[in-house]
Simulated scan of single mutants.
Amino acid sequence: MDKEAQETITPPSSSSAQPSATSPHHDDLLLPTELQNSILVAYRSIGIGTFGVVMRFVGMPLEKIALFMNSSQVTGKHQFAQSIKLTFQKGVLSPYKVVGPASLVAWFMQYSVMGLAFQFFDHALSKALGVAPVYYGDELMEPPPPPSSNTNHNHDATHQIKSITKTILAPILAGSLESTVANRAEVQRYYGPTKLTAIESHLKWNPAARFCGPSFLSNAMRNVIMCNTSFILTPITFKLYYPQERKSQGSLFWFGMGMNFVGNAVAITQQALWGRALDYAVYADGGAVVGASGAATANTVTTQVARNISYSQVIKSSLQKDGIAAFFTVPKWASRILMNAPVQGSLPWFYNNVLPLGEDSVLGVVRTLYGDDGKKNNCAIS
């Protein structure tokens, strides 16, 4: 490679600003546009997925506390203290011992695919129904659109129905996809791998049920709620109602965090239902053993038996025992926030400030592998 070509593809060292991860400018690398975009999407997806795995693994004690807080294993007063005791009852490192390969894969898929999944469904449905996709990226910083007359196409009843239909379906599909990927691993971390295998074996589930895992419906509802919060409510309300003169990346971060707190206030009801449903699936009685729950006394042993989940029975028995506190208390909400805040709160910073630092290097490697005639190939492909 001659000196002139090298100077052409190398970013100047005096560049005053790093390119934004959401609006990259790497034209000087002379790669075909579609190839460059695909590489950047893959790079960011892998980066976000890896970041999610590390943060979730480090925060496993917080996750276990939140899981116990939203289960029937804690009740009455001092629920937070009870949850901490249960989390570490088998040792300081016990929360990490329930993390298996399925959890690592699920975390990676959850963080690398979820955002892309919503955008895919949002854009696919928008194109199919002939409506605009949800606001995204730099659009959030622009002023809200001016009011239109009632005769405008955007206010046509049919158009509005299509738009509402798309807005409802996109997060449902994306949230359900996330649960399909992640729920079984979450259940495995709740029960432990051995106990989950015993439950599945006793209930003789079909392959699809095994893949989705127990209590899938409540898990999916939780993810749909949070998907709506992150990808529908936050961008729309920020775009339309946040003061224009105060809009910035920082204000969007804090606004998103605030909306996340609100979304979690609703999502914890489903998180609690998920935990109580899993407790319902294993009960103390005689029959097929899925795990000992007590010591032998007078030649008797209390065993745990697996049964299919009945959500109506779970809700009824929970309300009878604990009232509304079975599904919502301030400590439950706080534990959910404690579990989510470290990774969700720092993800925008990581995405917009850390990942861009490696983009030029990654594209430079690809440019080297792609060949020195990238400019010619780019012209031919374009």
Results as ranks from 00 to 15, higher is better:
residue 242 Y to L: 11
residue 266 V to Q: 06
residue 273 L to S: 04
residue 242 Y to N: 08
residue 210 R to K: 15
residue 247 K to Y: 06
residue 220 A to N: 07
residue 236 I to V: 14
residue 269 T to L: 13
residue 243 P to F: 03
residue 216 F to I: 03
residue 257 M to D: 07
residue 220 A to P: 09
residue 188 Q to L: 02
residue 258 G to I: 08
residue 232 I to S: 04
residue 213 G to F: 01
residue 223 N to V: 12
residue 186 E to T: 02
residue 245 E to V: 02
residue 274 W to R: 00
residue 255 F to Y: 14
residue 246 R to A: 08
residue 236 I to T: 13
residue 250 G to W: 14
residue 249 Q to C: 04
residue 219 N to G: 11
residue 194 T to A: 14
residue 263 G to V: 12
residue 196 L to Y: 08
residue 208 A to L: 14
residue 265 A to F: 01
residue 200 E to W: 00
residue 243 P to G: 05
residue 241 Y to V: 09
residue 274 W to N: 07
residue 257 M to V: 12
residue 256 G to V: 07
residue 273 L to Q: 02
residue 210 R to S: 13
residue 210 R to F: 08
residue 228 N to A: 09
residue 192 G to S: 11
residue 203 L to R: 01
residue 236 I to W: 07
residue 223 N to D: 14
residue 259 M to K: 02
residue 268 I to C: 07
residue 191 Y to S: 07
residue 230 S to I: 14
residue 183 N to A: 01
residue 258 G to K: 02
residue 235 P to I: 05
residue 219 N to Y: 05
residue 235 P to M: 03
residue 187 V to G: 01
residue 262 V to Q: 07
residue 257 M to L: 10
residue 261 F to L: 06
residue 249 Q to V: 10
residue 257 M to Q: 12
residue 227 C to D: 15
residue 218 S to T: 12
residue 239 K to V: 12
residue 215 S to N: 12
residue 223 N to Q: 15
residue 188 Q to R: 01
residue 203 L to I: 06
residue 202 H to N: 03
